[in-house]
Nucleic acid binder design. Structure first.
Lengths: 224, 224
DNA sequence: GTAGATTCTAAAGATAATTTAAAGATTTTA
DNA sequence: TAAAATCTTTAAATTATCTTTAGAATCTAC
């Protein structure tokens, strides 16, 4: 997921970024009002983590801009102030969730995930990528509206690809996400080739079209 | 990227090295305080992975040396101790991130990547040099907004050039960064000519414009 | 506990990248 | 200016990485 972190406190900014990056997101940061405004105008984000106490301008002002421009983006507000009015004002203006300093990064992360589930996929549990559609609650996958049957590894791999689209994923990173713990100990990741091959076959044309080989560095899931 | 692993536990040392190597980095190792100190004095690294519990001397001492000598290098500390004071002391002394044993290698790797991005290129995953644009997460390179395909060596070489722009880079230095340790065993660096040539061709006009030959001493990446 | 599905291993074949080699061009040195 | 050193360029040899298949090992559901 592509996330903008609008936060002026450098230490917090970088620890949020580190945490969210590690979770497979693509983060950018903005340290002040103008930078945030600019980046929002230029790029599309899935989520904006917005500190409403940005020093050079009100974070709430950014929220107004987003909503005025009809941007379809989830907004999670960070505030130092836990007063109820603040909270209501933020949510009223269209924020999707609200978190008060200090907080655990894991909590911020799970709220982001919840916002994404609720908002991005229209409250539904469907993820789409061109002709591929995934229903996350029933774990069914459709290619051009025809259901295909994926094994657990193939399904996990597909979701990992879709949620990291555009990024080159090394075999090590893939192994870490799909096999966890003991993947460190593995001395070869050759079996990933087999899963890639199987997933490509099951996705038919879409597999070849979207799962690109980055020779020597990994795989990339991308359209075109 | 060129990475020094200062870790005395042999098993961990070698698994870190294997993992980071496989991810396309060039790693060297130091097993004790003196070896680390020596290598840091002699070579330039992009990242030092530093175990603060090195047996023959405090790892934090090395951190002090690095900072005293103004070395521009990212430091990721490994510690067996997760106490807050330890962590703060490390970060206070100038470490860029901190990780507690035991950890997943992929996690260490993504922290290293985050440190590199934050430090060198201001947090963004896009590096620009005139009409050349590199997206480090998708590993794509654009020349005048048209994507070009680079092999791993060409990509590494380009990034090495961009991050050392203006400096004359000898073939020895280039070899050391792209081929690592055993590069000093090589008796000729002629293959670098080939990679330079290939990269220049793929960068089209920009290649000729920016990769300047410094006859007898190396190459320099610069826009006149 | 067994049958069937899934995952992993192994290996051959295909493809792509890297290095070697060598001929020709350019720059420096004497 | 001629010789020596260094660099450019191309093609071929070598090596690395990826694809694909088949079957063995493992897991799962009944």
């Amino acid at each position: 997921m592509k996330i903008l972190i609008a936060e002026d406190e450098k230490a917090l900014q970088s620890s949020i970024q580190t945490y969210l990056d590690r979770d497979g997101n693509v983060c950018e940061v903005a340290s002040d009002f103008y930078e945030a405004q600019q980046k929002i105008a230029l790029y599309d984000y899935d989520i904006i983590v917005l500190d409403v106490n940005l020093d050079t301008g009100s974070g709430l002002e950014i929220l107004r801009i987003i909503k005025k421009e009809q941007k379809k983006v989830g907004v999670v507000i960070i505030s130092a102030n836990s007063s109820l009015e603040d909270k209501l004002e933020g949510l009223d203006l269209g924020a999707d969730d609200y978190i008060t300093k200090p907080f655990h990064l894991a909590e911020l992360n799970s709220r982001i995930k919840a916002v994404l589930r609720r908002g991005k996929f229209g409250g539904s549990d469907t993820i789409e990528f061109h002709e591929i559609r995934v229903n996350t609650s029933s774990r069914t996958v459709y290619v051009e509206d025809k259901a295909i049957t994926l094994t657990r590894k193939e399904y996990d791999l597909l979701l990992f690809f879709i949620s990291n689209q555009g990024r080159v994923l090394s075999k090590g990173i893939i192994a870490e996400h799909l096999w966890g713990d003991n993947s460190d100990l593995l001395d070869n990741f050759d079996f990933i080739y087999v899963h890639i091959n199987n997933l490509r076959k099951k996705l038919k044309g879409a597999g070849a079209r979207y799962i690109k080989t980055a020779y020597g560095s990994g795989y990339k899931f991308i359209a075109e």
